[in-house]
Design a protein around this nucleic acid. Sequence first.
DNA 1: ATGGTCGATCCTCGA
Length: 302
Amino acid sequence: MRIVTWNVAGLNARLHRVKLWIEENQPDVLCLQETKMEDEVFQKKAQPVFEELGYESVHNGQKSWNGVAIVSKVGIEDPQKGFDDGRKDPDPDARIVWATCSNIRIASCYIPNGRALGDDHYKYKLDWLGRLHDDLKKNSDPSKNPVVAAGDFNVCPRPVLDEWDPKQEYTNFDWKTKKTLTETFDLPETHVTSDARAAIKKLDDLGMKDVFCGRFPEEKADTFWEYQKNAFRDKRGLRIDLVLASDVVAKSLESIEVDMRERTPEKMIENKDLIEKYKDAKGKFVKPSDHAPLVASFNWSN
DNA sequence: ATGGTCGATCCTCGA
């Protein structure tokens, strides 16, 4: 059972590559984030592509921003859009969708970025993670049942290992001044706070284990590199995409890895055939997302 | 002369 999470940064723009990736990698369940489209658009443009490949799908989206989907070749049962955490105020954003696939309750999650510590969006981020906890506790009981929450958590769970070094100096040539500039890059502060980490810890305490962390407690494995300033080339990334699994699932983990090839910028692709392959029907090279797919394989049968 | 973020939308915002 191969479960994948991938923030595609716009499914309309990325569809050609998502299709290729599914064909090559044959995931059982693919959790997508940042589809940036309404459900009607998903049904019309994306769903038929997935169906052609033998996949069912469920989507919770909105215009321009956010949007999440579960794409599965092992069934989609009891789909649910948004939270069912007992609260009356619905989430204003389309950030979570649930489905049961091969007897595992699965959520595709896009946690709010937070923007800045003083911003209301940061409060929303922490509240959102609390709601995820409460929904899991209320409906899924991860201490007993097979549950997976996969997605872009916008939190670096482990200090240092899941971050870039904010003190490291990077050099880039500036064509305007014709000088080599040295600069450092601050971490996104909303991703590394003790409160954000405590929210992930609370999910862990509920029984939702960060399976990469369980297998590789001492290793780095970034999943996101910003588009700006050659971040991928300079290995300036963060580990913010996570597969959280309840114990019965987590203990069946066979492998977990990041597909770096899918994030490789055009300039760094050496195999020219690959560049041709990434061109869509109109002959336009489809750029990578700023996130790489995180692929988790479990020895799971229901 | 080089390159400079990207996507969705409507030009600026969010990441």
